[in-house]
Structure formats: C-alpha cells, structure tokens
Design a protein around this nucleic acid. Structure first.
Length: 292
DNA sequence: CACTTGACCTGTCCGC
DNA sequence: TGCGGACAGGTCAAGT
C-alpha cells in the first residue's frame, strides 16, 4: 500500500537519518529483491557514502557518492526501516518500543545494509518489492521514469494540466485513470477512493462523462487528501511503517477507504464496497452517483 | 491502439 | 482443527 504519502514519509525519515552514512556490508536472501551482481555491489555500494534521499512517484532513490543510486520500490508490503544497534539491543532486553515491528531481521527481511552503528532493513512479506543499484544518471532512462506522469503536488501542476492528463484516458473509468501512473504519479487505491468521495464522483464514471467543474473539484480534493496523508505520516492498514518502524495515522481520518458498512461522514448512508478497475472500491451510494 | 485481466508472492480470513 | 479459496493491491506482460 505504499502510495505517494507513504513513500514521501519514508523519504523524509531517511533524509534525516542516512546522509553521510557509509555502507559497510550488504546481505540479501532473495535475488529478486536485490538483483544486482555481487561484483556491482562490491564496486559501487560497499564503502559508498550516502549523499541524499529522493522520491519520484512511488519510487525511493538513495544517492551514493559513487555516482550510483539505490532505486527502491516497496510495491504492496515493502518496508525500509532504519535501526541503530542500540535500539536493536533494547528489543532483545524486552523493552517496549513505539515501533510496530520487533527484533530485526524478521522472516520478511530481504536485504540488510550495515551502516556505522546502525542497519537499514528492507522487509517485504510478499516479495513484490525490489531495490536495485544503478548509475544515478541512468535512472531517468528507465521505462517507468520515461512514462510516469507529473507529481500531483508539484507547484507547477495545475487543475487544467490535471484535466488534460485525465483526458488521455477519457474512455476508461475515472478510477482506472487516477491509478494509471502514466497519467499522474503516486496515486494508489487508498487515495483514489478518498479523492473521489471528496469530489462526489462515482469511481466507475467514464472520464469523458465528467464535467470539467467536477474534475476541478477532484483536483483540489486529491491535493487535500495527499497533503493531509503526508502530514499524518501515511496510512497504516496492515504493513506500512515509516523509516523508524512506526505507523502512519491517516486511516483514522479516512472517509470511505476500508469503511464498508460504516456511515458516510457526510450524509450517514452506509458505505459499500464493490469492484472497479479490478480493485476493491469504497463509495457512498448516496453521495457518489453513476450518471447516464 | 486502447483498454482489461492475470501473474508475481505470502499471510489472513471465511466457510465447510 | 484443518483445508481450500478468496482477497489484499503496484506494476508489467499478455490478452481482447
């Protein structure tokens, strides 16, 4: 479930913890999680110093002073957790900690980077996520980066631009268009449902059938929801944690997502769950009407 | 070409 | 209690 707000929360955490850290050792248990060769890892990662942490769409980028970067996609259940050796010892001694997860590595740990007095753990229960090492300048040439749409919170991204982008997928449902990373970057199932509820648009409505004024509302609702979610440290439904292993609190602000059988906070009607664009979809049947 | 569906994985939950 | 199957949802490949 890491979407833009979750990946951004991890980025903010790592940006405070990682710069100037030196990578001393690397361990991995699952080659698909970290497909680089041992030779590349030794040449460009071990001994490298971390210079910065960036995000583009749902992808995390850790830049190194070797002119290489770690490109990381958490997919559904990925976690990047920084833990100092001191904190790790407290777990062993049975001391409670605010972290949602216990002693590391655990059985979902796929990669461990040993730093100076700390370790960075890449955990991923479902093994869909990955990290890979590549020259920093080549990142923009990856297919995904060439095709991915604009950042929805960029200052220069306007409602007009948003509507233009959505119209690239005018014959599909608005939910499928929002989830399409080549249209706009970073929206996933949670924030698609939340934004559509905010704009009172049914997720199965065709893009071409939605008046521009409603799409304009959708633009501001989307920005509102994404900003609020970043402020709350993202959504923890099950797996997601930030760089310190702590949960995000957006789910307690969610209006429809995972709230089936509960009242709509706007009108009190019972929220229903259905399937749109192949995904579990949450709507208020009174506020979000499918027209035509 | 535009769009939809299935595969990749594991853990959890539900019904029998 | 155990077991099969549905489900979770980001992205790419394959199918319509």
């Amino acid at each position: 479930m890491p979407e833009l707000p979750e990946v951004e929360t991890v980025r903010i955490g790592l940006a405070n913890l990682l710069p100037n850290q030196k990578i001393k050792a690397v361990w991995s248990d699952w080659s698909k999680s970290f497909p680089n060769s041992q030779a590349d890892i030794e040449a460009f990662l071990i001994g490298a110093k971390i210079t910065g942490v960036r995000r583009r769409a749902k992808v995390l980028l850790i830049d190194l002073d070797t002119a290489y970067s770690l490109v990381i996609h958490l997919k559904m259940t990925g976690q990047i957790v920084f833990r100092s050796d001191d904190d790790q010892l407290r777990f062993g001694a049975g001391h409670p900690n605010e972290s949602l997860i216990g002693r590391l590595p655990d059985k979902s740990t796929r990669v461990v980077l040993t730093l100076d007095g700390a370790k960075l753990f890449f955990n991923d229960q479902r093994k869909f996520g990955w990290m890979r090492l590549m020259p920093t300048v080549e990142i923009e040439n990856l297919d995904f980066f060439k095709k991915v749409g604009p950042e929805p919170l960029a200052a220069e991204f306007t409602a007009t631009h948003f509507i233009e982008r959505l119209h690239r997928r005018k014959n599909t449902t608005i939910k499928a268009a929002l989830l399409d990373q080549t249209v706009i970057a970073g929206i996933g199932n949670i924030y698609a449902d939340e934004s559509l509820w905010g704009a009172k648009i049914h997720p199965a409505q065709r893009v071409s059938e939605i008046p521009a004024a409603k799409l304009k509302t959708l633009f501001s609702e989307m920005q509102y929801v994404l900003k609020l979610a970043i402020e709350k440290g993202g959504s923890t439904d099950k797996n997601y944690v930030n760089a310190e292993g702590k949960r995000g609190s957006y789910m307690s602000f969610a209006r429809v997502f995972r709230r089936e059988n509960l009242p709509c906070p706007r009108c009190g009607t019972t929220i229903i769950k259905s399937r749109v664009a192949g995904r579990g979809t949450h709507t208020c049947p009174a506020c979000q009407i499918l027209t035509k």
